[in-house]
Computed example of a mutant assay.
Amino acid sequence: MSYAIIGFGRIGQALAHAFARKNITVAVASRQSPEVLAPLAQAIGSTVVASSLQNALQAETIILAIPFEQHGEVAKSLPNWEGKTVIDAMNSLAPLGEMDGLLSSVYAMKAFAGARFVKDFNHLIAATLATDPCVEGSHRVVFLSSDEEDAIAPVATLAKYLGFAPINLGKLNEGGALVHARGRIWGPLIFQDVFKKKQ
């Protein structure tokens, strides 16, 4: 399985740290050139590889860690998204009225037609996400939602391998609402730092 993180701000870097801790190769890309990203990527770990957007999008699993407003631009970078798993780690603070009354993940999913679309890694602040998720025999929880049941399992496996405890909240319009950020209204699980005891 190949992985890429699109967006190399605080959330993108936090996720890169998670991959580096487990020595998993991950491509990272942003609007900046690979040459600009390379020193920061190398400082995180040797398995974090600065890449162009087009090269990064060749990965099988792609994590969106960009500002929500940029997702449409990224979606247009490929003619189709068949066979890709897209992990939505974005948050939108826009009112629902600006997204056709839809939750942000449901709205964004429409731009990535054909992809297996999963909400994950969005509910933790960057500083928390960047730290080791294994603490005193417990694992930091991440919440997953998707409208495709078979899309959850591989993302949950990745999250578990990175040291997190994945919890499936169900479909985007149901469980996804629990970790949705919009305006000044927060889903009840957004920004909650929850741990699960190691079994």
Rank of each mutant, 00 (worst) to 15 (best):
A50K: 07
F143Y: 15
V86L: 11
G163W: 05
I66W: 02
L40C: 06
V194E: 01
G101V: 03
D150Y: 02
E98A: 14
A127L: 07
D100H: 13
I185H: 11
A59N: 02
Q13M: 13
S138D: 08
L57P: 05
I66P: 00
S30G: 14
D193L: 10
A50L: 04
V74R: 00
I66L: 13
A4T: 00
D100M: 10
S52H: 07
F191V: 03
G97S: 13
F143V: 00
P166Y: 09
V155F: 09
W81V: 03
K84Q: 09
L53K: 08
L78C: 06
E148M: 10
F117R: 01
S105L: 01
L124V: 02
P188L: 09
T131W: 01
K119P: 01
A127K: 10
V48M: 05
G183C: 12
E98N: 12
E149S: 11
T157M: 11
A38L: 09
A165Q: 02
G175V: 04
L78W: 06
P188T: 11
T131S: 10
A94C: 02
G163F: 10
L102G: 05
T61W: 01
K171M: 11
K119G: 01
L78F: 09
K22N: 07
G170W: 04
H139Q: 13
A108K: 02
A43Q: 13
A127N: 14
I11R: 03
S145Q: 04
A159R: 04
